[in-house]
């Protein structure tokens, strides 16, 4: 087995860790960086609870090894709220629209939705449903999550009303 000194940033802060190659990025964040906001669900890429942004793209941190993100900029749930704890627009919308119950899947959904809100293209109903289907939630039935992202997108000027829902041919 090989051990590696790996340097990257998490939410703008430089992290230098020494990790075994087999340690996933999710474990690296939780165990080495002490950032336990990223949740580990299935650990094989199905549930999406561990979704983080790697160089601004959403990725499942259980499917990347920590050693692979050397030099990358990682963003996690811990970076969303303001320093004084004030929730950002997306987090507030999740609270307002019952986008969570037990909260286990929430970090993954928030990071996935953060990516959608930051993309150049605005969010349509169809793209919202397509992208949010990436992650699993066993509490809400998804409607509260969709309501929350829709509300945040509207508030931030990222919603496109024109988008219709596509149905299979």
């Amino acid at each position: 087995m090989s051990r590696h000194r790996t340097t990257f940033t998490v939410n703008g802060q430089t992290q230098c860790v020494e990790i075994e190659a087999r340690r996933t990025l999710a474990e690296t964040l939780r165990e080495n960086c002490g950032l336990t906001g990223t949740h580990v669900g299935c650990e094989h890429g199905v549930c999406g609870a561990c979704t983080v942004l790697v160089d601004d793209a959403p990725m499942r941190s259980c499917l990347i090894f920590g050693v692979q993100v050397d030099g990358a900029a990682i963003r996690t749930i811990e970076g969303l709220a303001a320093a004084d704890g004030t929730l950002n627009a997306l987090q507030q919308a999740f609270q307002d629209h019952h986008g969570l119950q037990c909260g286990f899947c929430t970090p993954g959904f928030l990071m996935l939705a953060t990516w959608m809100l930051e993309r150049p293209q605005k969010i349509t109903e169809a793209s919202l449903r397509e992208v949010m289907s990436s992650n699993l939630c066993r509490c809400t039935g998804y409607q509260g999550i969709l309501d929350a992202v829709r509300a945040a997108a509207r508030r931030l000027g990222r919603w496109d009303d024109a988008g219709a829902i596509s149905t299979p041919a």
Binding site: G48, T51, P58, M59, R60, L112, E130, S134
Partner: peptide, 8 residues
């Protein structure tokens, strides 16, 4: 698959 899988 899904959007995050397609990124990687």
């Amino acid at each position: 698959a899904h959007a995050p899988i397609r990124q990687r």
